[in-house]
Design a binder for these strands. Sequence first.
DNA 1: AGGCAATAGATGCAATTGCATCAAGCTTGA
DNA 2: TCAAGCTTGATGCAATTGCATCTATTGCCT
Lengths: 153, 153
Amino acid sequence: MTKKATPSPEAIKAWARLMRVSRQLMESAEDALKESSLPPLAWYDVLHELAEAGEGGLRPFQLIERTLFAQYNISRLLARLEADGLIEKLPVADDGRGQTIRISAKGREMRRQMWAVYGRSITELVDAKLSADELTMVSALLGRLRHPPVVDW
Amino acid sequence: MTKKATPSPEAIKAWARLMRVSRQLMESAEDALKESSLPPLAWYDVLHELAEAGEGGLRPFQLIERTLFAQYNISRLLARLEADGLIEKLPVADDGRGQTIRISAKGREMRRQMWAVYGRSITELVDAKLSADELTMVSALLGRLRHPPVVDW
DNA sequence: AGGCAATAGATGCAATTGCATCAAGCTTGA
DNA sequence: TCAAGCTTGATGCAATTGCATCTATTGCCT
């Protein structure tokens, strides 16, 4: 008798839900930003990390670790953010290859504006639908699906 | 005193987990397909719907409802699938605008091959990490996050 | 019938993504 | 010390996505 490698029905359903719900929610949030003429979510992710990093800033490769974006993606995203004056690129003293990315005042302001809209989306899409306990449960379960190299999120 | 519209910490965490985990899992699955020189997941989604629909096929707008892809996206995806001989486009008798999309034998075979890899990913990424009960719980909780116009999935 | 809004699908063009590769600067080991 | 290899970040080019718009029908209303 040969081994059946097909996933369980429960796994298939959970996978399908995960893919669909996440896409749907992400789109809703993106739409809300667009309606407010704000940049896409990816910008928020980066501005958020940079804001948390403070004055010391972050190196691009650190942003890659934190956001899970591809290297070329970050490279170009940073170029756009810089063109919009939301970040500054500074040379690094002890590594001639690298740069340090620091959020600018304008960048902080943009992050604030985006959060006003983004946060509202989260409230409506998530907070309004599940209780705190249920949300904690979701986080715990999803946390177990993370891939090995988990940092801390 | 003004109302603070910020979502709860639980909601923020659940949102973050959802976005990150779903992206990570999706990428893993895509990578597995690429390693096997198979087409991207989007192709699977469409082939899957068409296979379930059987000989009667589906209209493009029905695929849009089922897969949540944008209209122009489906339009072009179908063009690529047709170019690869995985589907057929047939005229519709009672609606001169429309077409019916039917999966071809080659399309069924491709779906089968993709499932061999995709299913394995789901097994490894999901089945191996959570019990059936936990998966059912995940599905139930995520289900509550779906947007109103839910069909049946 | 005749016009007018709505629906189904395609498409031109700009922006973004993905892939592969590159250049420049570090690091290490013989 | 210096060549080989690794890391950091950028970039040319092709494929895909997003947006806006277009064409062809169809359905509806008078």
